[in-house]
Amino acid sequence: MKSKPSNSGLLSPVKSQTLDSAVIDALAAYVEEARIEPGDKLPSERMLCERLQVSRPTVREALKRWEALGIVEMRKGSGVYLRKAVGRNIVHVPLVLSRSSNVKDLLHGLQVRRALEGEAAAICAASASADRIATIEKALDRMEAAHAVGNSSEEDWEYHQSIIEATGNPLFTQIVQSMRDLVHQFWENPLQIPNFAEASFPFHRTMFDAIARRDPATARAEALKIIDSVGSEIREAYPGEA
């Protein structure tokens, strides 16, 4: 992982009467102005304390709040690394998701994905740039190649992410990123259903075809086929629990 220069002049002392929110705001402003990106290492706690003129426990508490939201990763012996974009006008809302193998929990996740991914596909078909569509196609090609020789879970995630990002709506990206663990759980096939989600695979190509020919209604319909196919498999395998 790369480490950005300190850019210490961008940090300013904060007033004690608004300490909790001010430290978070100051850190967010610093990350934005210093152009620190996800994957980059943040300055040391000592440097942050000196520039903000607050105690180390105060800085540490702010970083822990960010860690709880998935904004940073605190690596023992290495430092603090940014995981999500932050800035003055970006609000991170905690999203509590269950990783249980409960059938209803899995179906709840699919309901949310249905709303998000169906709309994202339609938006892409209507307004995504030619470059974005080319990126989606490359992601699909990688996914199909991986699927042909074995597990394509990571490539599947990248394909769906490329569609989400092509909407140009950062809220789509943030919400779906916060659901990453939940989405990956489906590929782990926690319910042990034979050939799980295999029936949904062809719809990934037909969804892209609709996006490429600028057909929002069909793009949405094909996206929903992916989600509904997986949901049907779960309901058929566990009819008494759905």
Rank of each mutant, 00 (worst) to 15 (best):
residue 52 L to C: 00
residue 54 V to L: 08
residue 54 V to P: 06
residue 54 V to G: 08
residue 55 S to K: 10
residue 57 P to C: 11
residue 58 T to K: 08
residue 58 T to N: 07
residue 58 T to C: 09
residue 60 R to F: 07
residue 61 E to Y: 09
residue 62 A to V: 11
residue 63 L to V: 14
residue 64 K to H: 12
residue 64 K to I: 11
residue 66 W to N: 12
residue 66 W to I: 11
residue 67 E to R: 12
residue 67 E to C: 12
residue 67 E to T: 13
residue 71 I to H: 05
residue 71 I to G: 08
residue 73 E to Y: 04
residue 75 R to F: 06
residue 75 R to P: 09
residue 76 K to L: 12
residue 78 S to Y: 06
residue 78 S to C: 10
residue 80 V to M: 02
residue 81 Y to N: 08
residue 81 Y to Q: 09
residue 84 K to C: 05
residue 84 K to W: 01
residue 85 A to N: 14
residue 86 V to F: 08
residue 87 G to V: 04
residue 88 R to T: 13
residue 89 N to F: 07
residue 90 I to W: 01
residue 92 H to E: 05
residue 92 H to S: 09
residue 92 H to G: 03
residue 93 V to P: 02
residue 94 P to V: 10
residue 94 P to E: 11
residue 97 L to I: 15
residue 98 S to Y: 02
residue 99 R to T: 10
residue 100 S to R: 06
residue 100 S to V: 05
residue 101 S to E: 11
residue 102 N to P: 01
residue 103 V to N: 01
residue 103 V to F: 01
residue 103 V to I: 14
residue 106 L to K: 04
residue 109 G to A: 06
residue 109 G to W: 02
residue 109 G to H: 06
residue 110 L to N: 00
residue 111 Q to I: 05
residue 111 Q to H: 12
residue 111 Q to T: 11
residue 112 V to S: 02
residue 112 V to Q: 03
residue 113 R to A: 14
residue 114 R to N: 13
residue 114 R to F: 13
residue 115 A to I: 10
residue 116 L to K: 01
residue 116 L to N: 00
residue 116 L to C: 01
residue 116 L to R: 00
residue 116 L to I: 15
residue 117 E to N: 07
residue 117 E to K: 06
residue 117 E to H: 09
residue 119 E to D: 12
residue 119 E to Q: 12
residue 120 A to C: 08
residue 120 A to T: 10
residue 121 A to M: 07
residue 121 A to N: 06
residue 122 A to C: 00
residue 124 C to S: 05
residue 126 A to C: 03
residue 126 A to S: 15
residue 128 A to Y: 05
residue 129 S to I: 04
residue 129 S to Y: 02
residue 129 S to L: 02
residue 130 A to V: 11
residue 131 D to V: 05
residue 132 R to M: 05
residue 133 I to T: 06
residue 134 A to N: 13
residue 136 I to S: 05
residue 136 I to W: 04
residue 136 I to M: 15
residue 137 E to F: 08
residue 137 E to A: 09
residue 138 K to L: 09
residue 138 K to C: 04
residue 139 A to S: 12
residue 140 L to W: 05
residue 141 D to G: 03
residue 143 M to R: 00
residue 144 E to H: 04
residue 144 E to D: 14
residue 144 E to G: 03
residue 145 A to W: 02
residue 145 A to S: 13
residue 145 A to T: 15
residue 146 A to C: 11
residue 147 H to V: 10
residue 147 H to Y: 09
residue 147 H to P: 01
residue 148 A to L: 08
residue 148 A to K: 08
residue 148 A to V: 04
residue 151 N to R: 10
residue 151 N to C: 14
residue 153 S to R: 04
residue 155 E to K: 07
residue 155 E to W: 02
residue 156 D to H: 08
residue 156 D to N: 12
residue 159 Y to C: 07
residue 159 Y to H: 14
residue 160 H to T: 12
residue 162 S to H: 11
residue 163 I to K: 07
residue 163 I to G: 02
residue 164 I to Q: 00
residue 166 A to L: 01
residue 166 A to F: 04
residue 169 N to P: 06
residue 169 N to M: 11
residue 170 P to M: 07
residue 170 P to W: 05
residue 170 P to A: 10
residue 171 L to A: 14
residue 172 F to K: 07
residue 172 F to A: 10
residue 174 Q to P: 02
residue 176 V to D: 03
residue 176 V to K: 02
residue 179 M to P: 07
residue 180 R to D: 09
residue 181 D to T: 13
residue 185 Q to M: 09
residue 185 Q to H: 15
residue 186 F to K: 10
residue 188 E to Y: 01
residue 189 N to C: 14
residue 190 P to E: 15
